[in-house]
Simulated assay, not measured.
Amino acid sequence: MYDYISIHSDTYTQKIKVEVLEQYLTSNLGFAKVSYLTFLKDVNGELVKVTGIPANPNGSYDFITLEGIEEVNLVEIDVPRYTDDILEQALSDIARAIAKEFSWIIDDDHGLN
């Protein structure tokens, strides 16, 4: 099991505005904003954290602090330490929804069995 699921634009070139990501996560997927570019949601009794991140063309983090970031090209969903089939399915559904909304891709080693 991996620690997170990565969803990003193809070759990390397409970026979205922070406000667009925030609106989608809170209004469409039911996440609550807990800090800048960080969102939480209770999924089957586990807190799931989603973070918007600016990445360089290699997919590496390209920031010192998230404050002031205006666009992102990577979203990470933290996978809780203990998961079951129901939680894994919910995480997959969230990842697919984000990927579909922004026409992004989910990494092959996406964090789920």
Rank of each mutant, 00 (worst) to 15 (best):
Y24W: 02
L25F: 07
T26D: 05
S27A: 15
S27N: 14
N28D: 14
N28I: 03
L29M: 02
G30T: 08
G30H: 10
F31I: 08
F31L: 07
A32S: 15
A32Y: 14
K33P: 04
K33Y: 03
K33G: 13
S35C: 08
S35R: 14
S35Q: 13
Y36L: 05
L37H: 02
L37G: 02
L37R: 01
L37P: 01
T38V: 14
F39H: 06
L40Q: 05
L40V: 04
L40K: 06
D42W: 11
V43Q: 05
E46I: 03
E46Y: 10
E46G: 02
E46N: 14
L47V: 06
V48A: 00
V48I: 03
K49G: 00
V50L: 04
V50H: 00
T51D: 12
G52A: 02
G52I: 02
I53L: 15
I53S: 05
P54L: 10
A55F: 01
A55L: 02
A55W: 04
N56W: 11
N56A: 15
P57G: 09
N58W: 05
G59F: 03
G59T: 00
S60L: 09
F63S: 01
I64G: 07
I64C: 13
T65H: 07
T65E: 12
L66R: 14
G68W: 15
G68V: 10
E70Q: 14
E70H: 06
V72I: 15
V72L: 11
V72E: 07
N73C: 06
N73V: 03
N73Q: 04
L74G: 07
L74F: 11
L74N: 13
L74H: 13
E76M: 08
E76L: 05
I77L: 12
I77R: 03
D78N: 11
D78T: 11
V79L: 11
V79N: 06
R81W: 09
R81T: 14
T83M: 04
T83R: 14
T83K: 09
T83S: 05
D84A: 08
D85K: 09
D85M: 10
D85S: 12
D85T: 10
D85R: 12
D85H: 07
I86E: 13
I86Q: 13
I86Y: 05
L87S: 11
E88P: 03
Q89D: 04
Q89G: 01
A90C: 06
S92Y: 13
S92R: 15
S92L: 13
A95V: 00
A95F: 06
A97F: 03
I98M: 09
A99G: 06
K100H: 03
